[in-house]
Simulated scan of single mutants.
Amino acid sequence: MKIMLNPAHSVVHLTMRFDKTELAVGSGVLYLKDNKTYVVTAWHNISGRHTETLDLLNKNCSIPNNIIVSMDVEIKQGDFVGSTRISITVPLVDNNKTTYFIHPQGYPKVDVVAIPIDLNNVYTMEGKLMSGENINLPIQLKSKQPHGLELNIIHIQDCEFKDYDIGDYSKSLYVSDDIFVIGYPKGITDYTGQPIWKRATIATSPQLGWEQQEQFLVDCASKEGMSGAPAIYYSRDGKINTGNVYYKGSKPITILHGIYVGRLGSTSELEAQIGKVWKRKIIDEIIDNKILDFLSEELILSNSCIKQTINEEWPKENEGYANELLNDKTSYRYYFLNLIMSKINGRANKEKVLELILEYAETLKNGIKQ
């Protein structure tokens, strides 16, 4: 028997660090697929870069190389079932490779990652003695201790609704429906480590997507630190309405709909607080493909590589293409820019790529005139 059907137990607090230096805080969720455990969170949390511009987020230009994952661990001994909060150190780079999976779609960038967690592995739990001395303690997330004591973690799937007779409820999520984003705004928590529940209203159609991507927008008064938090439907009364079927059960109902990755274009607290949620299916696609991210120093392509791609993709049969592209009133510039960004898997700042495209077009135009 699991401790509770409370999805908050599957939410994790993340502290992104460079060695021992703390850079930022964020949120995540423990996800189970094919009997393996993952911490799912936002890509920009782990990479330390802006999703679109690829600019470094830390003011000192530091990049995370490890994270502290604080999570609930289920404790069972005989008839007793309870939980405690622990924190483990998870490396983001190992043997000169990243340790987390990204989505195969390089552009537009999918702002979600999955970090494998081996429950049988021994992780480091950092602690401090009363004297102030720092110590490292080994801990295994799933184990059987002496005297019948068992440890295990709680995945979001452990809390989810299991009656599939009503079909896939996620397809019945509509504009104006309420969901919750559960995470750590501004890193706020207390000694219990419990996350904060933020109510969100579906602001755009999940079925239509947003910007032709597997995402939708929500109206939510979120803050920094919520990026990577799970976006869920939750009914304490056990009620669910798919539009075709109304169901009333005896236990709370939880359904994961996706990962919240932050607000759109906000520069002040007074702006409309519209946030973005990547759909749940994105998580499964990331795990199924198991593509490791680039190391930070390898992520950004050199100008020469970008110029080579521009040259390879330039339509050689169209002598007037340079003039059309330099005319910003046509759609040529937009289409060619997105073509190049797709070919290089988004591994450059879009404005920089456009600058190189226009430079190339200008060179060809002058060459034609000569």
Results as ranks from 00 to 15, higher is better:
N136A: 12
I88G: 11
S227P: 05
E312M: 03
L56D: 10
I67G: 02
Y360S: 13
K248R: 12
K350Q: 10
Q308S: 06
P230R: 02
D177T: 07
C305R: 09
C220V: 13
S172A: 06
F336Y: 13
L208M: 11
V175I: 15
K369M: 08
I196N: 14
P146E: 06
I282E: 11
P252T: 09
F180L: 14
S331I: 06
L292P: 01
K279P: 00
Y334M: 04
G82A: 07
I156T: 04
V110Y: 07
I196G: 01
L149N: 01
K2C: 00
L270C: 06
D158K: 07
P108K: 06
R347A: 09
L364A: 05
T309C: 15
L339M: 09
I156A: 04
L5M: 11
I202G: 03
I340F: 09
G183H: 01
V110Q: 03
E160N: 08
F18W: 11
D34Y: 04
I166V: 13
I67A: 05
T267N: 08
S172T: 12
L354S: 10
E362C: 02
L358P: 05
T53R: 08
P91W: 10
E355G: 08
V112L: 09
R347H: 07
M130Q: 09
I182E: 05
W43G: 07
N289Q: 11
N65K: 13
D288F: 01
T189W: 02
G193M: 10
F216Q: 02
